[in-house]
Design a protein around this nucleic acid. Structure first.
Length: 257
DNA sequence: ATGGTAGCTGGGCTA
């Protein structure tokens, strides 16, 4: 079984790319972030035509997440979660159970810049998200948390660590907040299989980051030991970042036995 | 010197 996570940066603008990617890669479950539409605006029929069940947690203009499950894969105990105290309507987390595996799909707050109100909100949001993760882990031993975390783990995840030192996506407080979310029970599954740096999942449009090789690894697959024990590989699908009208993120795909 | 993209939306915000 393969579980993929992908920040698509608008599912409607990306529809041809998303459909092509689903049709060729055929992940058993696809976790999308930044769908940037309401539930009834999601291109449901087109995705269902490829054999997927669609569960969305949408929002107008910003954010929004979705779970796509290749049928007859069961999706049970759906949970659409908002951080207590978050701005009205922020749809960032959707979770479901597949057999003995609990899956949480998250789009973490970006934070704009260190020291701004949005940065403070990001740290607070991560704290609250940590409570949800602990709750889910207490209920499910085999836990997988995927998504756009908007945080790098260390310098190996940054193309220019000097330039990005203590900048947004790389600051010590963000990394500590992510570590707190993971506690002692969740691991960075990509790093478990790949130790060297230089593997990225996000390249900025604005500075033409992909063409320059300027990337960051901020999309992650976090696993409990029980989940990691049945995982055989975690790969970044860099090809999906190439070509016409790509998202600024590449998918990350985890394979299970 | 402070550029340059992309998406949603219908001017400005977000990334």
């Amino acid at each position: 079984m393969r579980i993929a996570t992908w920040n698509v940066n608008s599912v409607r603008a990306r529809l041809p790319r998303v459909l092509d990617w689903l049709a060729t890669r055929r992940p058993d479950v696809a976790c999308l972030q930044e769908i940037k539409c309401l539930d009834d605006q999601f291109p449901r029929a087109e995705v269902e035509a490829l054999g997927y069940r669609v569960e969305t947690f949408g929002q107008k203009t910003y954010n929004g997440v979705a779970l796509l499950a290749l049928q007859p894969q069961p999706l049970e105990d759906l949970r659409r979660w908002k951080a207590n105290g978050s701005p009205e309507g922020e749809a960032r987390v959707i979770a479901a159970t597949l057999g003995d595996l609990r899956l949480v799909n998250a789009y973490v707050v970006n934070g704009q810049a260190v020291g701004t109100p949005k940065y403070d909100y990001k740290l607070t949001w991560l704290q609250r998200f940590g409570e949800l993760v602990r709750e889910e882990h207490a209920a499910h031993r085999k836990l997988v948390i995927v998504g756009d975390f908007n945080v790098t783990f260390d310098d190996r995840d940054v193309y220019d660590p000097v330039e990005w030192h203590e900048k947004i996506l790389c600051s010590t407080a963000e990394r500590q907040a992510l570590a707190a979310v993971m506690g002692s029970g969740l691991r960075d599954a990509f790093r478990h299989f790949t130790q060297e740096g230089g593997h990225y999942t996000y390249w900025d449009f604005y500075t033409r980051g992909f063409q320059r090789g300027n990337g960051l690894r901020i999309d992650h697959v976090l696993m409990s030991d029980e989940a990691l024990a049945s995982c055989s590989e975690v790969k970044i699908d860099v090809d999906a970042r190439k070509g016409e009208k790509p998202s600024d993120h590449a998918p990350v795909v985890a394979t299970f036995q």
